[in-house]
Design a protein around this nucleic acid. Structure first.
Length: 207
DNA sequence: AGCACGATTAACT
DNA sequence: GTTAATCGTGCTC
Protein backbone atom coordinates (compact mmCIF):
# COMPACT_ATOMS: atom_id res chain seq x y z
CA UNK A 1 0.00 0.00 0.00
CA UNK A 2 1.42 3.32 -1.08
CA UNK A 3 0.43 6.59 0.54
CA UNK A 4 0.28 10.16 -0.72
CA UNK A 5 3.28 12.39 0.07
CA UNK A 6 3.25 14.44 3.27
CA UNK A 7 3.08 18.21 3.02
CA UNK A 8 6.61 19.66 3.34
CA UNK A 9 7.61 22.33 5.83
CA UNK A 10 7.76 24.97 3.11
CA UNK A 11 3.99 24.64 2.72
CA UNK A 12 3.46 25.68 6.35
CA UNK A 13 5.98 28.52 6.07
CA UNK A 14 3.66 30.40 3.70
CA UNK A 15 1.21 33.17 4.57
CA UNK A 16 -1.28 31.89 7.17
CA UNK A 17 -4.35 32.83 5.11
CA UNK A 18 -2.90 30.92 2.15
CA UNK A 19 -2.27 27.87 4.35
CA UNK A 20 -5.78 28.04 5.85
CA UNK A 21 -7.32 28.17 2.38
CA UNK A 22 -5.13 25.50 0.83
CA UNK A 23 -5.20 23.04 3.73
CA UNK A 24 -8.78 22.31 2.62
CA UNK A 25 -8.94 18.95 0.86
CA UNK A 26 -5.66 17.73 2.40
CA UNK A 27 -5.64 14.69 4.67
CA UNK A 28 -5.05 14.79 8.42
CA UNK A 29 -3.33 11.54 9.43
CA UNK A 30 -2.68 9.99 12.84
CA UNK A 31 -0.64 6.79 12.93
CA UNK A 32 -1.62 5.40 16.31
CA UNK A 33 0.74 3.51 18.56
CA UNK A 34 -1.47 0.45 18.14
CA UNK A 35 -0.93 0.49 14.36
CA UNK A 36 -4.26 2.04 13.46
CA UNK A 37 -4.24 4.66 10.68
CA UNK A 38 -6.78 7.48 11.12
CA UNK A 39 -7.43 9.84 8.21
CA UNK A 40 -9.77 12.78 7.73
CA UNK A 41 -10.13 15.16 4.80
CA UNK A 42 -9.85 18.72 6.10
CA UNK A 43 -13.09 20.58 5.38
CA UNK A 44 -12.89 23.68 7.60
CA UNK A 45 -10.02 25.79 8.95
CA UNK A 46 -9.33 29.24 10.41
CA UNK A 47 -6.29 31.53 10.38
CA UNK A 48 -4.91 33.17 13.54
CA UNK A 49 -2.30 35.69 12.58
CA UNK A 50 0.22 37.32 14.91
CA UNK A 51 0.11 39.32 18.13
CA UNK A 52 -1.89 42.13 16.51
CA UNK A 53 -4.79 39.74 15.82
CA UNK A 54 -6.89 40.16 18.96
CA UNK A 55 -8.56 36.80 18.34
CA UNK A 56 -5.18 35.02 18.37
CA UNK A 57 -3.76 33.57 21.58
CA UNK A 58 -0.56 35.45 20.74
CA UNK A 59 -2.32 38.73 21.63
CA UNK A 60 -1.15 38.32 25.26
CA UNK A 61 2.45 37.80 24.21
CA UNK A 62 4.47 34.63 24.49
CA UNK A 63 3.45 32.39 27.40
CA UNK A 64 4.07 28.78 28.33
CA UNK A 65 0.72 27.83 26.81
CA UNK A 66 1.11 29.48 23.40
CA UNK A 67 4.90 29.21 22.99
CA UNK A 68 4.59 26.63 20.20
CA UNK A 69 3.05 29.26 17.93
CA UNK A 70 6.34 31.19 18.00
CA UNK A 71 8.28 28.16 16.85
CA UNK A 72 9.11 26.72 13.46
CA UNK A 73 6.32 26.15 10.95
CA UNK A 74 5.02 22.63 10.48
CA UNK A 75 4.53 21.83 14.15
CA UNK A 76 1.24 21.13 15.94
CA UNK A 77 -0.02 23.70 18.43
CA UNK A 78 -2.49 21.90 20.71
CA UNK A 79 -4.22 23.73 23.54
CA UNK A 80 -6.91 23.04 26.13
CA UNK A 81 -10.03 25.17 26.56
CA UNK A 82 -13.46 25.32 28.24
CA UNK A 83 -12.19 22.95 30.91
CA UNK A 84 -12.62 19.90 28.69
CA UNK A 85 -11.69 20.41 25.03
CA UNK A 86 -8.48 20.11 22.99
CA UNK A 87 -7.88 22.09 19.79
CA UNK A 88 -5.43 21.24 16.99
CA UNK A 89 -3.58 23.98 15.09
CA UNK A 90 -0.81 23.94 12.49
CA UNK A 91 1.99 26.46 13.11
CA UNK A 92 2.67 28.67 10.09
CA UNK A 93 5.07 31.35 8.76
CA UNK A 94 8.57 32.06 10.03
CA UNK A 95 9.94 31.11 13.45
CA UNK A 96 9.54 34.06 15.81
CA UNK A 97 6.22 35.11 14.26
CA UNK A 98 3.21 33.65 16.12
CA UNK A 99 0.60 32.33 13.68
CA UNK A 100 -1.35 29.13 13.17
CA UNK A 101 -4.27 27.47 11.40
CA UNK A 102 -7.01 25.91 13.53
CA UNK A 103 -8.47 22.70 12.11
CA UNK A 104 -12.22 22.94 12.68
CA UNK A 105 -13.60 19.94 10.80
CA UNK A 106 -12.57 16.89 8.79
CA UNK A 107 -14.47 14.26 6.83
CA UNK A 108 -13.63 10.77 8.18
CA UNK A 109 -11.82 8.73 5.51
CA UNK A 110 -9.94 5.89 7.25
CA UNK A 111 -10.18 4.36 10.71
CA UNK A 112 -13.82 5.32 11.16
CA UNK A 113 -14.41 2.43 13.56
CA UNK A 114 -11.73 3.80 15.88
CA UNK A 115 -13.32 7.26 15.71
CA UNK A 116 -16.73 5.80 16.60
CA UNK A 117 -15.15 4.15 19.63
CA UNK A 118 -13.78 7.47 20.82
CA UNK A 119 -17.08 9.26 20.12
CA UNK A 120 -19.46 6.66 21.52
CA UNK A 121 -23.12 7.11 20.70
CA UNK A 122 -22.62 9.88 18.15
CA UNK A 123 -23.93 9.59 14.61
CA UNK A 124 -21.20 9.39 11.96
CA UNK A 125 -21.97 12.92 10.78
CA UNK A 126 -20.92 14.21 14.21
CA UNK A 127 -17.68 12.29 14.63
CA UNK A 128 -15.34 15.07 13.46
CA UNK A 129 -17.50 18.11 12.58
CA UNK A 130 -16.00 20.44 15.20
CA UNK A 131 -12.50 21.41 16.39
CA UNK A 132 -12.84 19.59 19.72
CA UNK A 133 -14.72 16.67 18.17
CA UNK A 134 -11.97 15.94 15.66
CA UNK A 135 -9.36 16.03 18.42
CA UNK A 136 -11.39 13.55 20.44
CA UNK A 137 -11.95 11.27 17.44
CA UNK A 138 -8.27 11.36 16.47
CA UNK A 139 -6.94 11.03 20.01
CA UNK A 140 -5.17 14.39 19.87
CA UNK A 141 -4.37 15.95 23.24
CA UNK A 142 -1.60 17.73 25.14
CA UNK A 143 1.04 15.16 24.17
CA UNK A 144 0.88 16.44 20.58
CA UNK A 145 1.61 20.07 21.41
CA UNK A 146 4.88 20.82 19.63
CA UNK A 147 4.76 17.60 17.55
CA UNK A 148 6.81 18.02 14.36
CA UNK A 149 4.41 17.27 11.48
CA UNK A 150 7.30 17.23 8.99
CA UNK A 151 9.91 15.19 10.87
CA UNK A 152 10.86 11.59 10.01
CA UNK A 153 9.28 10.35 13.26
CA UNK A 154 5.96 12.17 12.78
CA UNK A 155 2.90 10.13 13.72
CA UNK A 156 0.61 13.12 13.18
CA UNK A 157 0.91 14.91 9.84
CA UNK A 158 -0.91 16.14 6.73
CA UNK A 159 -0.91 14.12 3.50
CA UNK A 160 -1.50 15.59 0.10
CA UNK A 161 -5.17 15.18 -0.81
CA UNK A 162 -7.37 16.71 -3.48
CA UNK A 163 -7.30 20.21 -4.95
CA UNK A 164 -10.32 22.31 -4.03
CA UNK A 165 -11.28 25.00 -6.56
CA UNK A 166 -12.41 28.46 -5.43
CA UNK A 167 -15.99 27.70 -6.43
CA UNK A 168 -16.07 24.94 -3.80
CA UNK A 169 -14.76 27.17 -0.99
CA UNK A 170 -16.64 29.63 1.22
CA UNK A 171 -15.08 32.08 3.66
CA UNK A 172 -16.44 34.16 6.51
CA UNK A 173 -15.78 35.41 10.05
CA UNK A 174 -14.11 33.08 12.52
CA UNK A 175 -16.29 31.25 15.02
CA UNK A 176 -16.58 31.77 18.76
CA UNK A 177 -15.00 35.22 19.03
CA UNK A 178 -17.83 36.74 21.06
CA UNK A 179 -15.73 39.14 23.11
CA UNK A 180 -13.13 40.00 20.45
CA UNK A 181 -12.87 43.61 19.24
CA UNK A 182 -13.31 44.70 15.64
CA UNK A 183 -11.98 44.49 13.06
CA UNK A 184 -10.58 41.15 14.18
CA UNK A 185 -13.94 39.70 15.11
CA UNK A 186 -15.22 40.05 11.55
CA UNK A 187 -12.14 39.28 9.47
CA UNK A 188 -13.15 36.57 6.94
CA UNK A 189 -10.41 34.17 7.97
CA UNK A 190 -12.53 31.03 8.18
CA UNK A 191 -12.47 28.73 5.15
CA UNK A 192 -14.91 25.87 4.45
CA UNK A 193 -15.49 23.35 1.72
CA UNK A 194 -19.02 23.87 0.39
CA UNK A 195 -21.76 21.46 1.46
CA UNK A 196 -22.18 20.11 -2.04
CA UNK A 197 -18.49 19.40 -2.54
CA UNK A 198 -18.22 17.84 0.92
CA UNK A 199 -21.10 15.57 0.00
CA UNK A 200 -19.30 14.61 -3.20
CA UNK A 201 -16.15 13.76 -1.22
CA UNK A 202 -18.14 11.63 1.20
CA UNK A 203 -19.67 9.68 -1.64
CA UNK A 204 -16.20 9.00 -3.07
CA UNK A 205 -15.01 7.74 0.31
CA UNK A 206 -18.06 5.54 0.73
CA UNK A 207 -17.72 3.88 -2.66
C1' DA B 1 -3.70 32.14 46.54
C1' DG B 2 -7.76 33.56 44.23
C1' DC B 3 -10.44 34.62 40.26
C1' DA B 4 -12.74 35.26 35.64
C1' DC B 5 -12.96 33.34 31.37
C1' DG B 6 -12.44 30.62 27.04
C1' DA B 7 -10.65 29.62 18.90
C1' DT B 8 -16.70 24.30 22.47
C1' DT B 9 -20.06 20.86 22.99
C1' DA B 10 -24.28 18.61 24.20
C1' DA B 11 -28.51 18.91 26.10
C1' DC B 12 -31.99 21.52 26.95
C1' DT B 13 -36.74 24.87 25.88
C1' DG C 1 -33.09 29.96 20.72
C1' DT C 2 -30.32 29.24 25.86
C1' DT C 3 -27.19 27.24 29.19
C1' DA C 4 -24.35 23.98 32.15
C1' DA C 5 -20.25 21.43 32.11
C1' DT C 6 -15.36 21.84 33.73
C1' DC C 7 -10.35 23.29 34.52
C1' DG C 8 -5.88 25.20 32.68
C1' DT C 9 -4.29 29.61 31.97
C1' DG C 10 -3.01 34.27 32.74
C1' DC C 11 -3.91 38.11 35.44
C1' DT C 12 -4.55 40.50 40.00
C1' DC C 13 -3.84 40.81 44.79
Amino acid sequence: MKYAPRLPRKFYRQDTLHVARHILGQRLVHLEAGGERLVGIISEAEAYVGSEDLACHARVGRTQRNATMWGEAGHAYVYFTYGMHWMLNLVTERAGYPAAVLLRAVIPAEGVERMRKRRVGRPDAQLTDGPAKLCQAFGVDRQFDGHDLCGPAAVLFIERGVMITDQSVTSGPRVGLNTVAEPWKSMPWRFCITRSFAKQLQEEIGS
